[in-house]
Every structure is written in structure tokens, then in C-alpha cells.
Design a protein around this nucleic acid. Sequence first.
DNA 1: AACACCTGATCAATCGTTTGCGCAAACGGC
DNA 2: GCCGTTTGCGCAAACGATTGATCAGGTGTT
Lengths: 336, 336
Amino acid sequence: MAKLSDVAARAGVSVSAVSRVLSGDPSARLSEATRERVRKAAGEVGYHPNFAGRALKLARTDVIALIVPDVTNSLFADLTRGVEDEAVARGCVMLLARSEDMQPGGSMFDRLVGEGRVDGIVLQPRDGTDPEELAQSVGVRAPIVTIHQRIPGASSVVVPDARAARLATEHLIALGHRRIGFAGGLAGSPTAQRRAAGYAEALEAAGIAHDPALVTWRGYREPDGRASTAELLALPQRPTAIVAANVNAAVGVLAQARAQGLAVPQELSVVAVHDAWTAAHTWPPLTCVRMPLYELGRTAVSALANVIDGGPVEHRSVEDPGPVLVERESTAAPRG
Amino acid sequence: MAKLSDVAARAGVSVSAVSRVLSGDPSARLSEATRERVRKAAGEVGYHPNFAGRALKLARTDVIALIVPDVTNSLFADLTRGVEDEAVARGCVMLLARSEDMQPGGSMFDRLVGEGRVDGIVLQPRDGTDPEELAQSVGVRAPIVTIHQRIPGASSVVVPDARAARLATEHLIALGHRRIGFAGGLAGSPTAQRRAAGYAEALEAAGIAHDPALVTWRGYREPDGRASTAELLALPQRPTAIVAANVNAAVGVLAQARAQGLAVPQELSVVAVHDAWTAAHTWPPLTCVRMPLYELGRTAVSALANVIDGGPVEHRSVEDPGPVLVERESTAAPRG
DNA sequence: AACACCTGATCAATCGTTTGCGCAAACGGC
DNA sequence: GCCGTTTGCGCAAACGATTGATCAGGTGTT
């Protein structure tokens, strides 16, 4: 692989001259003729700056890591694109890692951060992790921004969870539903709490009494949605509609409804927070509230860049675009 | 961040002594007392070898890249785990990249390979890419192993596609089906051809005539499955069952069947090659042939390690475990 | 007493880039 | 024709880890 000295030899100049030309150093005083010769020589030998040499000198890798609980969750498609687009726009490459082996304090975390392989981290903590404990083990060892959740001492970015859940709930109310269940996330999860709050707001605004029995706290996975639904449908006065706090859980809601012989949307309406590839291919296709996850990714990287550059800890919320309702076929007016 | 010289100062020895102790150099002559002091000092200052320094000296990063067409496809969950497990077992970290911006010759490819950020690449070419062209642009610029598909000059690893399709087809034949459609991948795709061959083998073994009209070549995505199904169901003598060459396409098969008012499995049986999270949550849940994708990942990394160490180009097929049929609810005996 | 030899550890060069500083030559003002 | 400034470029010192060569003492042999 061609190096600076190869280019220098070919162009008949010194290594430092080449370095300055190629990095576009504005303070460099070099004649246009020389610059041209250098660029030509670099092209001819196919020069690419050596990553290790540069990283060693600059103490910067231009790599940022995106760590999510499960890389293959279709919900992360948009997020991933957003992170990558913004990273590329800033001249960085994105390293995607699974958070299973990425528990802070774990050996993988050490390899990334401790060995200086990445400049910073965008971290989506696994649902149900304790923020204090997380902050402890992450320490100040690397610039980090969390998404969906705050941990002490680190920047964070969130999406308008409350607004989204409120939108979903209002959609059901507009259809005429009065008894609406909420299949929520884990009680400890901040996103779950914000979404539950949005649900409550919508009910209150419509003058509907808030019945705690209609709210479950199971989690975001498919079996959680199933369990929540079983619980809600066992109520003496069963709901005519369910807001699922997550699209994966919503798949479980549909499954449980089918298992109990309830037709969706005729006998039970279902609306989910989040949209994903899968949502359009369930039966019936799920009405969803699309969240600005692409922008979440871009914003997170932008916040991370600030921290890397020594900026202060900050907390952002992605407000534009806001959540938007995507109507499919899982919601309808209640019967009778 | 602590460096070698910090450890050396604390232990009262030279930098080289520390390096040798910590890297476990067997040819090093150092007293056990010194070794102990060095290890203690390293632990106290929290030493982690600097990635860039090491990479520069050794011309090795211990990073391998996994490049797939779409990171969020649930089919890649097992593959990803396999690649990562084997990488970690060999002391490497995995860098996961999307192949959209990873077209060989593209800027991202240059950054990974040209700048020496990775030691090698496990590449799953996007379906329908031309092997010749791909080989051209990849060149010999990096150790590379492809999966599912061969390109000239590079090692490759595949799974038993023919056996899998044969297994799926035999399952339908055992249920009593005689007129079986095949919703295949793109005609140019090697995996699609192998699967179609397995389908044909099963028919022949059962003494069923092979009707080319029953075989489509649309692709592996959901809309492709839908289109294939529409085509097959429009046949004068429609099939009673369909083998989908891919689980995503199978979702499309289900959707189209539903759109045409056909009950699955009563009026149409569906079986898919590949298993994934989604397959258990469609309606009805899909009968699938599970492929050894985890082992595919491990094998690919192992083959890549060989190439990196200067070994010859080789082509492997993952035979153990073989494909296995997972019966769910989308297949049944034909009516009447 | 002279010699080789082994042990335990250090010296110094090297990987490829970046960058502060120095040094000529050219230039302009008087 | 002298001096100060600008222009154009090269020298050399980092960055942190690895490793062949080297060296100072101690031990054993003749």
C-alpha cells in the first residue's frame, strides 16, 4: 500500500509537503504547481492515508460506535441509517455493535473504548437497565450519548414518546372508543412511562376516566404484548381497543386476539407506537404512529460530535418531524 | 489513558520489559518477580494497549468487517452472531456495515480496506450483483470471503441450499401434494438456482413431472413473493402448495393468498426456506426449513482467518448441522 | 586467571502521519 | 546595495507499541 513517502518520492518533494497538500492545510505555503504535482502523484500510486498512522498521531479514529440491544430488530433500520448518514457527513465511519456483548465494563466495551478504537459511542441501553449502574460502569471513559433514556453525566436524545402515544390514543377516541387499554413497556423504562403519560393525557383531554386496570407494564417484546392482551381481555369490562406501546408488542396483541377468537378491527382495534417493515405485513396490517427515528440517529451523532469536541452535556428531543399516524387496517369504530 | 511507559515507570522497569510481559512473549527472559510487579502495575493504572500504536507497528487491526445487504433483515441475526462469536474467539472485533454504501470501489470500501481499518471482510453480495464485476472492483485489495455466492479469486462459504429446498418440497409431497409451485429468487442468483434444483430433485424422486410454469424467478423480497403467487395462482391448473425460496418472500405469498381469498393451509400450503423471528408471527405461522446460518458465520470467519494468514483460496459448505424442517401451521394435506 | 555462557533487563529503530520550526531564495522599499 | 519580509519547502520530533540487538553481571569450565 502506497504511503506518503511513495507519493513524495514520485512528486519529488518532501513527505511533509505531501501531507500538507493532501490534507488541504490552509496555513501551508506551497505553490500551486507543487500541489498539482503532488495530487497527480497521489492519484497515480493510489494513495490512501494509513488509518493507524493517522490515528496514532491525531489520537482520533473518526469512528463512532452505535450500540443497540439487538441489531436485527427492524425498528433500528431508520435509526441506523440516520446514524450512518450523519457520521458519513462528518467524515466518520460507523461501527455497529450488539449490546449483548457490549455491557459497559465488559470486555468488548473495553476493547472499543479502552483501546481507543472509537472516538465516541451512541448507546441505546437495553430496556430495564439501571441508569445509575450504567453510568457507573461507563464512567467518563468515553464521549457517549444515550438515546431514549438518560444516564447521569451523559448527553441524551429522545423522541416525543408522549405525543406519539397521545396521537395513537386520540385516533381511537376519534373513532368512538371509550374503553381503551394500554399495553405498555416495563414499568422501569422511561420510554414506557412517557408513552403511558401521553395515553393518559389523551383520555383526560377527552374527559374519559383513567382506569389503572386498563394499563399493563409487560415490555416491548411479542410475548409481552400477548400477555398484556390476555390480561386486558380478562377484565370484567373488556376494552374495545388497545394502544400498544411498541410495534413488536403489537404483533403479540394481534396474536392473542386471534387466539381468543376476536376479530381485529371489528371486535378489537389495535394501534401501535413505532412503525416498521413488519407492521405492514401482519394480519391485519397495523395502524401505527411513525416516529422520527432517522432524525433521532442524525441528532444523536450531532450531539456526540459536540461532546467529542469538548462541548457540554445536553439533552435534546427530536421534534421535527413529529410523530405521524399511519392508518392501516387494524383500527375501526367500535361495534354497536 | 495509561500507556506502556506509565506502567514501566510504576513498576520500575523499561518499556520493553512491560511490553514483553504483557504480551506473554515466551522468548523473553524476565524473572517471575519482575513479571509479577509489571502485571500488578498494569492493573493499578488500568492499562489497555493503544489500538493505533499496536496496529501501526503490527500492520494488523484485529478487526474484520461483516458486510451484508441489509443489516436489519432478521435473517441476519444468526449469521451475525456466528460471525461475532468466531471473531471474538479469535481475538478480533467485528465491524458491521451495510452494503448499500459498501459497493466495492465505493468510498466506504476504500475507507475500510484502503486505509487499513480492517484485516479482512466477510461479504454477502447483494442479490443480483455480477460476480465478475464484483471481483474486479474488490481486486486483491483485501482478504475477503463471500457467503452464499462465489466471486473469482476469493474464498467462499455456502449452506446446502439444494438440500433445504428438497426438504421443503418433500414435506409437501409427503402431505399428498402433487402440484407444487416454487416462488424462487432472481434467475441470476446462485442461491436461487441451487434451491430451484433441490425443488426439482424432490419432484423427480417422487416421480412428479416438472412443469416450468410452476417455477417463478422474482426475488427474495416480500413484493416478489406476492408477484410470484399471483402468477402461480393465475395458472389454469393452480398449485395446491408453494415452496417459497426465502422467508421474506413467503410473507408475500401469504399476503397474496389472503388477498385472493385463499385460506392457508386449507386451500394453499406454504413452506419457506430459512427461518426467522418473523416466521413464527405471521398468520398462519410459517412452516420453514431452518438453515445453519450461525455456523455459516463461524465458518466464514474461520475461512477468512486462513486467507489472512496467507492460506489458499478455498470453498466450503456448511453441512453440519444440515437444514431442518420446522413445522408450524402453514402446511396441511391438500383438500379432497 | 582467562574464557565462554547464561540470565535479566535495556537501547534504539521502526511502523506512517502530522506539524512547529528553521532555512534558503526571491522580492520590495529606500 | 542593504535590510526586512514574504514565499516555498524540508527537518525532525512526536504519537504508542513491538522487537532484534546489546550489555552488565554472575556462574561454570578449564
